[in-house]
């Protein structure tokens, strides 16, 4: 069942990448990258249990931290983009 979960995680990551490439607005892409990052954390944890190497869990933990901080940073960068563009036009 662990291997089936790993395959499901890979399918989910492919679908999130398709949304990140298609996504019409920047927020769709950020959302897809967020989903991709969370699924990466889970995939590293699952691979740890498949291959029996417990040090992979440290990598998963660090990846969870980096994923959250990068999403918040990118969102702060894009948060007022639309308003600035509109006020610049007026």
């Amino acid at each position: 069942m662990i291997i089936a979960t790993a395959i499901a995680l890979l399918v989910v990551m492919v679908l999130a990448l398709v949304r990140a490439l298609l996504g019409p607005t920047i927020h769709d892409r950020i959302l897809a990258v967020n989903v991709f990052g969370t699924k990466t954390v889970l995939l590293i944890s699952v691979i740890c249990f498949i291959s029996g190497r417990p040090e992979f869990l440290d990598i998963a933990l660090v990846y969870a931290l980096i994923n959250f901080v990068s999403i918040i940073g990118v969102l702060k960068y894009f948060e007022y983009q639309g308003r600035d563009e509109r006020e610049g036009m007026q």
Binding site: T25, H27, I30, L31, N34, I71, I72, L75, F78, E79, Y80, Q81, G82, R83, R86
Partner: peptide
């Protein structure tokens, strides 16, 4: 944060 950012961008 994603929803708030989308609302501020007037999406």
């Amino acid at each position: 944060a994603l929803a708030k950012s989308a609302q501020h961008c007037d999406l």
